[in-house]
Nucleic acid binder design. Structure first.
Lengths: 211, 211
DNA sequence: AGCTAAGCGGATGGGGTCGTCCATTTACGT
DNA sequence: ACGTAAATGGACGACCCCATCCGCTTAGCT
């Protein structure tokens, strides 16, 4: 993942400064913050930034690799919870909180990364873990049987819509939305639903691609 | 609203072509489609566009005035329905469908218009009408008592998040989200919720302002 | 038909971002 | 201490978008 071995000491140092700056910048200004702004915040020149990360995408991938890993660990925690339903709920709540806190993270979920292998690998791992959480929660009779994995995407995208701005109000909105939806996800009193959207790429990512 | 009287015939003609082109462009490409693209689609020069609508905002206001009026009439239909709950549900379903069909409409809901009076007036009218729908649905014992008007905004914003792209999948997602939420809104089996977000401006509009 | 003001659209300047090039600086092995 | 290759950063050209200016065209009245 990191060919950062052969780098000279100063280059290695700058590399982490770039990543810190990018994380901050993405979090507060979203994914399309100018590259120059990131460079300035890191206290380096634009050229250095471009040499280290040839495309904006590679930078994003690197930055959100960590946060995606956090997602995966959230799923692992959910799997470790003896109560499948509680695990299910807290996993969703945690991820949604992360989304609200970080605007770039929100965007990253909506954006297609044609060739970010590591990224995609972790994502798939988290997804499969969550599928297992789902399976258990259904088996325990707490999660409605017609819950579809696409409903997770649905919830995340809905949460994205609520998470505009980083204000406290957005956080409150997100909490409430999640509470509403979790209530609907419960097996008790479940009523028929329209079919889940197919989990195609253009639903996952809208039609957005990073430039 | 329309000082289009004193215009020469050709100018009047071009004005409607601009509006048509703008409606299409906003619907398919979102609110920040280049002005030049609108002009080209309308088959006129940029200058003409700017003379007729000095700011992008004035154009948006004009274009979405109609659609907002449709919203208001949707609310009126809901008020006319003898069954308050059915009115409540169908109003929400209709507006959400509109949002999915028109990307610009979605954006318009998220964007602040500091001085679009007509626009704002209609919006307030629709909002008050919906408040009445809400009151009746609660009185009929169908809508949960702790439903807050901010929950409508919450739902609309959530729906915006789902409505990226104009694909059929987005429509299916929206329908399912709405079904989930309407189920949670029902009075029966309602459970405690975290507090509703305050209906402040920065929640309504994120921190977005049209440029 | 002819006049005039309204209307038109291309060209243009100003601002902003992207991504590269190259002269200069700096780390690090000897 | 010194030489070399790695690393740096500012300047630059290309592109895109906004919004205005100005010389030309045309509708509509008499």
């Amino acid at each position: 993942m990191e060919p950062a071995q052969a780098l000279r000491a100063d280059a290695r140092h700058n590399r982490v400064r770039i990543l810190e700056a990018a994380r901050e910048a993405f979090a507060t200004r979203g994914l399309d913050v100018p590259m120059a702004a990131i460079a300035r915040r890191a206290g380096i020149g634009v050229a250095t930034l471009y040499r280290r990360f040839p495309s904006r995408e590679s930078l994003i991938t690197e930055v959100f690799g960590d946060e995606l890993a956090t997602c995966a660990s959230v799923v692992d925690e959910a799997l470790a919870d003896p109560d499948p339903w509680r695990g299910f709920c807290s996993a969703i709540e945690k991820v949604c909180t992360m989304q609200v806190a970080d605007r770039g993270f929100t965007d990253a979920f909506l954006t297609a990364f044609p060739d970010a292998i590591d990224y995609e690998r972790t994502r798939v791992r988290a997804e499969q873990g969550f599928a297992e959480v789902t399976r258990r929660a259904k088996a325990a009779g707490r999660l409605r049987a017609d819950f579809d994995l696409a409903d997770l995407t649905l919830l995340l995208k809905a949460n994205c819509g609520v998470a505009t701005g980083t204000s406290e109000a957005a956080a409150a909105g997100s909490r409430r939305l999640v509470a509403y939806l979790l209530q609907s996800f419960r097996a008790e009193h479940a009523e028929p639903l329209p079919p889940a959207p197919p989990l195609t790429l253009d639903f996952l990512y809208g039609s957005a691609t990073v430039r």
